[in-house]
Every structure is written in structure tokens, then in C-alpha cells.
Amino acid sequence: MKNILLEIKTSVLALILLTLVVSGAYPLVVWALGEAMFPHKANGSLIVAKDGKALGSELLAQSFTSPKYFHPRPSAAGTGYDATSSGGTNLGPTSQKLMDSVKAAVAQYRAENGLQAGTLVPADAVTSSASGLDPHISVKNALLQTARVAKARNLSAEKVAALVEKYTDRRQLGIFGEDGVNVLKLNLAMDGIIDQ
């Protein structure tokens, strides 16, 4: 019994001391180093307008629905693109609900972009991402939207395609991951808010 009491005492002391180190000193050191070396990223990679207003984060998708903007992937985060409620649909491969929404999204995608019935639609355009905040769409998806955006803005398709190219994040170091087009940055660039 005395041994157990002794171990409890050691446990409490060790818990306090180790917690001070791993929950106190450690996150503060990382925070200080982050602020010193990567302040933009450590604070959410925010895109700030000239008047100082935050317009979003480079890393987080926002809703865009009008023809003159590229559209992000469908989102299941909260009521859509909610950056305090990230998540996917969690619907499985035999879910009626999922297939109904995919069917509707395919029809809408074809109608919006003037695609013929039967045209295969890129999977990322009609499925929800894991986070609901996926900042990217596939290059294939972006190129299928290019004609619509160019028409709505009275721009040449080449000019819009060049912007798509510019805002495509290529495989990192030429190897890791997949290519993706950052939708928010691309749309803001077309509005002239960030560099064209």
C-alpha cells in the first residue's frame, strides 16, 4: 500500500513537470520559431485585400457559383465550405443519397459547361472532398470550365487557360502528390485582386 501511495505521488509530480515541458514550453517554442520564420503560413496563409480585409486563405476553398468564376469541388463542410466544420459526406459506395447527388452534379456540370450528354465528367468535379475545404480542382476539371469563364468575362480562352496554368500547383519537387488548380487564387487573380 505504501508503495502504491508513493507511485501515485511520483505520478502526480511527473505529470505536472512533464506537462509543463510538452504542453507549455514546447508549443511556445514552436510558436515563437514559426512567427519568426514563417509568419504568413503560421497564421493561416491569409489573402488580404488592399484595405486590410481578409478575403480567405490560400489553402481553403470558398463557394463560387456564377459562370465568371471557376467552381470548386462540392463541399460537405457544415452547410458548405465552413472552415469551422471540416469534413466529408461519409457516404459509402452503395449509398442512394450519394448517387442522387452525384447524378444531379453531373447534369449540372454538363449544363453549365455546355457539354454534350454522355460526356464523361471529371470525378473531382462531382464528388465532395474529404475536408470540404479542398482548395484544388484537377487540371482536367479546370480546362473544361475554361470556355464558360472566358465567355462570361469576354476574354479569350487562351488568356484564361494561361491563368489556369499559372495557378496550377504542380507535383511537389516533381514527384510528390498530384497536380491541382488553386480555385480561390485563380478567381481572385481574374478579378485583378492578386497578381494576374
Binding site: 466529408g88 452525384v102 470525378a123 475536408s131 479542398d134 502528390g177
Partner: peptide, 12 residues
């Protein structure tokens, strides 16, 4: 494109 439901484009 495979099954992209619930996946992120950057990971594929």
C-alpha cells in the same frame, strides 16, 4: 479518375 469521393485533389 478512380473513386474521388472523400479524397483531396493534392493527394489523389
Amino acid at each position: 479518375d478512380g473513386n474521388m469521393e472523400g479524397k483531396e485533389v493534392r493527394f489523389g
